[in-house]
Design a protein around this nucleic acid. Sequence first.
DNA 1: ACGAAAAAGTTGACATTGGCCACTTTGGCG
DNA 2: CGCCAAAGTGGCCAATGTCAACTTTTTCGT
Lengths: 238, 238
Amino acid sequence: MEAMNKTPPNAAQDERPYHHGDLQRAVVTAALEILAETQSTEFSLRELARRAGVSHNAPYKHFADKRELLGAVSAEGFELLAMRMSEAARGKTSARARLTAMARSHVRHGVQNPALYRLMFGPFLFGANEERPVVELEAAEKIRTLLEDTIIDGALGAPIPRSARNASKIDGAILNYWAQVHGLTLLLVDRLVGPASRADELADRAIQVLIDGLAVTIPGLPRGAWVGPRVTRRSSQA
Amino acid sequence: MEAMNKTPPNAAQDERPYHHGDLQRAVVTAALEILAETQSTEFSLRELARRAGVSHNAPYKHFADKRELLGAVSAEGFELLAMRMSEAARGKTSARARLTAMARSHVRHGVQNPALYRLMFGPFLFGANEERPVVELEAAEKIRTLLEDTIIDGALGAPIPRSARNASKIDGAILNYWAQVHGLTLLLVDRLVGPASRADELADRAIQVLIDGLAVTIPGLPRGAWVGPRVTRRSSQA
DNA sequence: ACGAAAAAGTTGACATTGGCCACTTTGGCG
DNA sequence: CGCCAAAGTGGCCAATGTCAACTTTTTCGT
């Protein structure tokens, strides 16, 4: 009896079905929202569930715990950064202009959402002696590759062919770039330098100094040191 | 009756007096310990109180809330960093050697206690639109001054007299130093480059590139930008 | 086509936390 | 000596992360 009211698809679309559809994504999206609003990673899982319109335990069907959730959010942040960087570089003709544009958009990305930026690079996701989440390493590797290509392409003044002999020099240059840009971003984000509205100019100067410094001699990295996420290092034996 | 057993001061020294003596300091010290052990700022006030051997509410007589406590810990971290940097510089004859030594000890300070380092520079202490705690700004200013003196002293190749004309150039150089060293430290601390055992070499190269870059032209900071904590800017009108 | 199992969501419970309160103990000062 | 503020205590509260048991869908092998 009353066979009609089982799975009623007729009651408009606000009649939420028992199953959310794609809660996984909804939760990550909501987390990004809350992160942007509160600027803190200490928001509550429950508040998040409330926003997504599900019970406080539903997210646990998709993420083992809060860390795993934040890991997904962080990875999203890395993807977003990579997209912004590569889009900023698109259209620029010189490799140097591309490098500058990438630095700008990196700094902007941080300033625009400090909490997300700190989550991305920070330690919220791996304990004292743990590794970083794989999903995050992969996303970060994408950015490293972007930089590598630009440097090989001549961003430092002249193209540097990708050879075994040059590898450590390129890594060294990437390290210096990362340190400079990441450092500047965090100083801005943490309000130790400013104002944040000057981010572009400051990023430009940072790159200027970096390139001038590297143009003299490209030193190369000490043997055994590594730059960027190590995930690809290991996968080479797969 | 039984007047004898009130306030018994005879029971050796392990018989803790009702008043701790200097709980304020004890709490900060305990917090530094827990921070070093757990590598997280999310330890509980209660655990801390347990360690100090007092009730879970005793710390509230000395700190309004957890933030204020962490602020004191952070300030301690800045003081410690300043001490290490200035001691590392002591004895070095050339200004450049001093700058390198300071960078090394900065990076070491971070690598040795990541959680403390992140607490110092991170956002745990000021909300979305708040200022940094004053105690922290003052400690950070000390470090900025250290750097300024070294740069004025010729760390970049030639002495730069402290003049109104040079002020923005010096600030620019300090910004680049900070970005590079702070950035490198965090990349190490957050395990995006490594290994941490190579910290000294990497710091040396960072300074090398920095100095090479600045030696070409010292650009100067755009008008209106600031470097370092702003606390002294305001106190000049007092 | 059907029934069982897996997936997705729900309610209820528990220990722990930061912070508030009223209370007691102690040291110092007039 | 007496009193009061500072320092420390225990009780309490709402909120949180996470576990466990239950219910509702969806899926999938036969």
